[in-house]
Design a protein around this nucleic acid. Sequence first.
DNA 1: ACCCCGATCGTA
DNA 2: ACGATCGGGGTT
Length: 183
Amino acid sequence: MRILCKRWRARSLINMRLPRSFFQRPTLSVARDILGKTLVFYGKKGRITEVEAYIGENDPACHAARGKTPRNALMYGPAGFSYVYFIYGMYYCLNIVTERENFPAAVLIRAVFVDGAPPKMTNGPGKVCRFFGITREHSGVDITENPDFFIENSPSYPFEITTSPRVGISEGKELLWRFTVQE
DNA sequence: ACCCCGATCGTA
DNA sequence: ACGATCGGGGTT
């Protein structure tokens, strides 16, 4: 009886969406811990395998490096909201806002593994959004509340995490704020 | 109103 | 290594 109860409880924690408290933490912790979790977007699912951290106005590669603007305002808002931006005239990139309100920080989702899909389809931030159909319309969504857009605390076997410099930036290359699941 | 650059991707 | 392609931010 007691064991059954414990099992049910453990199972209920798995496959549950990540709550706001998960994202209201230091961004480097969120970045590491979000690896292996499952991005759920209108029925499509993908296991997060690569992310980058962008942290505060002192991070030269952060969109907030030059202060608050209409574009980056979401990064100053509460944790657990999506921040989708348009880049290079063609691509969207998905971030999840982290840390406390008024401190601009986020985790960029760079790659996911989708069961049954070729890895090449989802192994870059622009590709992830293209595959899932994520656009500017999906920016500013509270992913701790939205029924169709959230991150699931999926079960996962242990894995190694590799750190490296962030991609596509000109300053801040000395920071190892890119986190990748080792296969 | 104008100019320049960009948290990318696909091809060479 | 490089071109595609266009919104945003800074400047005039």
